[in-house]
Design a protein around this nucleic acid. Structure first.
Lengths: 225, 225
DNA sequence: GCAAAAGTGTTGGGCCTACACCCATGC
DNA sequence: GCATGGGTGTAGGCCCAACACTTTTGC
């Protein structure tokens, strides 16, 4: 019997209320029936790896992602009890609005968001894959302004700040953080304000400047908080 | 027909004389017969991906490497004209002494080192794979003190300096470079000197302090030259 | 008026860059 | 003695961390 090739996707979503979350599906069949697993499946003969990931995500969760990159290929011998399966894991991000849409409609569904601090028991070696993806996400914020892919088009600055504090799991200096981000010259302040949570001063909305953002990503950056 | 799974290895060697080089083999069979290619081949049913890489390297080149990490998995549809092949590419480094050994004995052999500035025509998509590996190597020197894996146990400081200048392809300030490296606290100066190339003042030998080196790698570093 | 979150500047110190001359050897 | 490569120190400037009070809103 040949080696089978699969893909798996670790998709992150973020929202100030729910925190940083990962999309999982409930397995319908043995092995690990009833446990949670990463969305994914076997690669078809005539599709690329990326196409396989996107197809499986649509089939299993209905979601389409805003950012996708390869994470790592897992090839240990007994990952799957049935046969030899090598899996190419991908790392994906979805925007906050899509995150909310799915999280509001999945109570009875097979796909569900789980906060990364509160993950269920996982199938196969998916806990390892998720661990590596979280490491990648944490590392990424030091060299890429990933907020662009996780937040919506317009957002209050505090959303970005909360994203970083959840990811770093520690408070940051708001003044220094704002100076540093603004210095990258990838954010534009809009003439719009939103009132958040009832109390508190209304916040200005910001959006990413796509051109400057891409220039920065291409040129490379380094960013310690 | 199923998708076949292969591995390929981009192995770097370094020597002050030859510069930064990659190990290639000459293909004996069609397709691309007579062209140069990365060492690699199909993964067997009962070996891990790393084992497959190491086996192929021994079989095809006789070399054993001092550092190996996964680079990227290439899964485009027409990489191989015969059938669908997905290949997991690895990134390897060998120590200078082994590099010299092979380069001295391979005149008539099928395995040969090529300076990265002077590569031959390559088979399949191996030029893309090598391009990505070189990017990884360049990026790596800014966050990992890779000299440890490319140089021998003992080496004059100028070897490390030349490694960086070849990789960066520009001159660096020797005094600042030395201060910066020494500040990492991973090098020990030995009470030994070597005479190099006949003329010139003899140089002190250094070696890596393995414990401090590993602590640094674990903790993470960032290093701009 | 008070609770909640947004918004906003300055300074001291550490680090990093820029820079040039002497030393030990072979021939 | 000259060519070759090894070895070494400092000062000025920039950047970054540390730090707290005011503003605008809801209740």
């Amino acid at each position: 019997m040949e080696i089978k090739l699969a893909v798996d996707a670790v998709v992150f979503g973020y929202d100030k209320e729910y925190g940083i979350s990962i999309l999982l599906i409930k397995r319908k069949f043995s092995p690990f029936k009833g446990d949670w697993a990463l969305p994914g499946g076997f690669v078809l003969q005539n599709e690329t790896l990326e196409q396989a990931v996107e197809r499986e995500l649509i089939e299993e969760t209905g979601i389409s992602i805003s950012y996708l990159e390869q994470l790592y290929t897992f090839g240990e011998l007994n990952r799957d009890p049935r046969q030899r399966v090598v899996s190419v894991a991908y790392f994906g991000l979805v925007k906050s609005s899509k995150f909310k849409k799915l999280s509001a409609t999945t109570d009875a569904s097979e796909a569900k968001w789980f906060n990364i601090k509160d993950l269920p028991k996982l199938s196969f070696d998916h806990a390892d894959i998720i661990g590596m993806a979280i490491d990648r996400l944490r590392a990424k914020i030091t060299y890429q302004p990933i907020g662009f892919e996780l937040l919506d088009k317009k957002f209050p600055f505090s959303d970005l700040e909360h994203l970083y504090t959840s990811l770093l799991d520690r408070p940051i200096d708001r003044r220094n953080f704002k100076k540093k981000i603004m210095h990258l010259d990838i954010l534009e302040e809009l003439n719009e304000k939103v009132k958040l949570k009832g109390a508190g001063r209304p916040a200005s909305l910001f959006r990413f400047n796509k051109k400057n953002y891409e220039r920065l990503v291409k040129r490379g950056m380094h960013f310690e908080i």
